[in-house]
Nucleic acid binder design. Structure first.
Length: 701
RNA sequence: UGGGGUGUCGUCAAGCGGUAAGACACGGGCCUUUGGAGCCCGCAUUCGGAGGUUCGAAUCCUCCCACCCCAGCCA
């Protein structure tokens, strides 16, 4: 089955709606809503819900409302309302004139409460919050009825009116539904409907000092708005019987609630609490820090609404809790930006190149296409002259195999310009670093084509030194070093999992002249580097700042990474790194010699589960593992296998074998309390992992 | 040990009794004035496990296992 007007397959929600339509429920009407609480900024997880609600309405010829669930004046702020509206609009959705607030319905909700009281279905309860909790029972034991449960209708009416009049202190009493204190569903054990809250509300001011709970407000708000399909996240599944109970008791329009799994993204966190902790802890510069998964952060980073919408479509909707690979998000951005970004040249780490045979004062303006994907985007002129900058990375004195860039004596193409050949390397006398290159160019290759048909393997980006502008460039990487920083198994201190390299600031980058007049709304591809946009906040005419939205796919980086992994020289070093620990295990003979079984028995091998794994700052070869050996605490173990695990996070959750009775070894990075077994082969190095029904601490024999 | 959910490729995700879509990732190749883009090929004999029903099961039944959510006067 396909969605109407789309190639995407039907998801379970659309299937349900289509069935409802077929059964002529709600007179063929489809009406959804996006109901944020104005207590924080929207993030990519909200985008999933926004896309779902607005697109479903669109596809089925219905409407989608924007409604703020503002039932708790102590937590919500008007500031958030504006940012949320801006974000939804930015994503490209329109709620028309249907902007609502749960607080719009406070009068009606109050009437509903009165109705329940009159019907003997609600009562005022004087139990303290602690008592209510105690009376509620537990997951396995039923609760007890409140002593106030059987107050008369008249008394309840009087008390509730006095609650409304503000006669009681906060917490002194609440209005509760009278349902069933023995229900296996805790939500049905006489839930609170109204609580005393002497707090001004940003929309209703001082009109109320009692406020409905979310549970009492949400379903009825949906009902009032005639919402046919109320889409929400999984945790509200248990609340559905309660919402349906309210609707039934009140005899009002019944929306149909459907729950779906919220979005989790790898290498970031999504909970409001954690995002707030990042902001308040100063780990990011604010809610709109380009590393944040907030829509305002992503917008600043250079994400487009189209990319986010495509992403939301591709991840699908289901009830399975899952974590989407952030690579998919990045893919969607690249896909969109490839089509629309203007190609420009910028050099992040400049290396001076002098074209010795190019006339001293000559300047040529060369034609350069703006986007090879779309000729309609036209072209621009870029200046070429005797002194240029190229990327430092694009020159190697001693080029490895498959390195196609510049090296002594080698010829490459400068994009849109000429073939050049490296003739001479000038070095800094003190440091020995490459300071400058002297090259010659072939005047016959103007535009980058050679008449004689000779080919070059590499094409470099460049900027004319005399014409270059300067800019600061901010390179972003994943916020966390592990794929699942939000996982409770990673411990409460998810802050320790932050990626120290999530932001790299590169100053004094050289940019082609046309970039000097860039504006924040424009997306660029800096050739061979990635997609960039001007920072909307920090960029000034005096100091231009560009954010890297996402890198280009980089197959060369992959080649180098693989090479690094397989490099036999490096491997030998790894082995040395591992070796010292051997000596401490006692008189264990190394492979080759036969040992007595008693010797082996001295080594206490245990199954360990890796709970955390990360690189060690300042140590190229080490990774740090926090391993669970079932001892009620984690052991810190350093292992020299970094080359095999450029991303040590992949080890998290793996079962490994630990030599558990080694004398702890003090290293400069900390105490290493054991050793994990690893295998070393011709082209391999890796930690041995085990499978099977083994628990942390199990003895390995 | 109560209730509500979920388990299909490394990650998402179709499938609804007729013999495992697609996407990302990954591997290989072609092409290329971005090692970008594009194009082509490969990538689950198997659907948490075990039984059963059936000519036929990821889909139906039974039991089991794992994971998530619920004891706010938060939403």
């Amino acid at each position: 089955m396909k969605r109407p007007g789309s190639q995407a397959p039907m998801d379970f929600i659309r299937t349900i709606i289509a069935e409802d339509l077929k059964a002529n429920k709600n007179g063929g009407r489809v009406h959804t809503r996006f109901p944020p609480e104005p207590n924080g900024y929207l993030h990519i997880g909200h985008a999933k819900s926004i896309c779902l609600n607005f697109k479903i309405a669109e596809e089925f010829g219905g409407l989608c409302n924007l409604r703020f669930d503002d039932t708790n004046p102590t937590k919500e702020e008007a500031e958030y309302v504006e940012s949320i509206k801006e974000d939804v609009r930015w994503l490209g959705f329109d709620w028309g004139d249907r902007l609502y607030y749960a607080s719009d319905y406070f009068d009606q909700l109050y009437e509903y409460a009165l109705q329940l009281i009159r019907d003997g279905k609600a009562y005022v309860c004087d139990l303290s919050p602690e008592e209510i909790r105690a009376y509620r029972g537990t997951l396995t034991e039923p609760g007890k009825d409140s002593p106030y449960r059987n107050r008369s209708v008249e008394e309840n009416l009087d008390l509730f009116e006095r609650m409304r009049a503000g006669e009681f202190e906060d917490g002194a009493c609440v209005l509760r539904a009278k349902i069933d204190m023995a229900s296996p569903n805790l939500n049905m054990r006489d839930p609170v409907l109204y609580r005393m809250l002497h707090a001004p509300h940003q929309r209703t001011g001082n009109k109320w000092c009692i406020y409905p709970t979310y549970d009492f407000a949400h379903g009825q708000s949906d009902s009032i708005e005639g919402i046919t399909h109320s889409l929400c996240t999984l945790e509200f599944e248990d609340h559905r019987p309660l919402y349906d109970w309210f609707i039934r008791q009140l005899r009002i329009f019944a929306p149909r609630q459907i729950e779906f799994a919220r979005l989790n993204l790898s290498f970031t966190v999504m909970s409001k609490r954690k995002l707030l902790a990042l902001v308040q802890g100063g780990h990011v510069t604010g809610w709109d820090d380009p590393r944040m998964p907030t829509l305002s952060g992503m917008r600043r980073r250079g994400y487009t609404p189209e990319a986010i919408r495509t992403f939301c479509e591709r991840i699908g909707v289901a009830k399975k809790e899952s974590t989407v690979d952030i690579g998919l998000l990045e893919h969607c951005l690249r896909e969109d930006l490839n089509r629309r970004a203007l190609r420009r040249m910028a050099v992040l780490h400049p290396l001076r190149v002098v074209i010795d045979n190019y006339p001293e004062d000559q300047v040529e303006y060369l034609d350069a296409e703006n986007n090879p994907e779309d000729p309609a985007m036209g072209s621009r002129n870029i200046p070429f002259s005797r002194v240029l900058y190229i990327e430092r990375e694009d020159f190697r004195e001693d080029p490895p195999k498959k390195y196609f860039r510049l090296a002594p004596g080698r010829e490459v193409r400068l994009k849109h310009a000429y073939y050049i050949t490296c003739e001479r390397v000038v070095k800094d006398e003190k440091t020995g670093d490459v300071a400058e290159l002297h090259c010659t160019y072939d005047p016959e290759t103007r535009g980058g084509w050679s008449r004689d048909g000779r080919r070059v393997k590499g094409t470099l980006h460049w900027v004319s030194a005399a014409h270059a502008g300067e800019a600061q460039v901010r390179l972003y990487d994943h916020l966390f070093v592990v794929p699942n920083p939000g996982d409770p198994k990673n411990g409460a201190d998810f802050i320790s999992l932050l990626n120290p390299k999530s932001l790299e600031i590169v100053s004094s980058c050289k940019i082609e002249p046309s970039l000097m007049s860039a504006t924040p709304g424009t997306h660029f591809q800096f050739l061979r580097l990635g997609y960039f946009c001007m920072d909307a906040i920090d960029s000034t005419p005096e100091r231009l700042v560009f954010n890297r939205s996402v890198t280009l796919r980089d197959t060369w980086a992959k080649i180098e990474k693989d090479r690094h992994k397989a490099d036999p020289v490096r491997k030998a070093e790894e082995i040395k790194e591992v070796t010292p620990a051997h000596g401490q295990a006692g008189d264990i003979k190394t492979a080759g010699d036969k040992i007595a079984i008693d010797d082996f028995a001295r080594v206490d091998l245990r199954v360990g589960v890796v709970r955390e794994a990360g690189a060690v700052k300042g140590a190229k070869k080490l990774i740090r593992l926090m391993v669970d050996l079932g001892e009620g605490r984690l052991r810190q173990i350093f292992s020299g296998v970094r080359s095999a695990y450029p991303d040590p996070g992949v080890l998290t959750g793996k079962k490994v074998i630990v030599v558990a009775n080694l004398k702890p070894r003090q290293m400069s990075f900390g105490l290493s309390e054991g050793m994990v077994l690893a295998g070393v082969g011709e082209d391999r190095l890796g930690i041995a992992t085990v499978e099977g029904d083994l628990a942390p601490g199990d003895k390995v024999m």
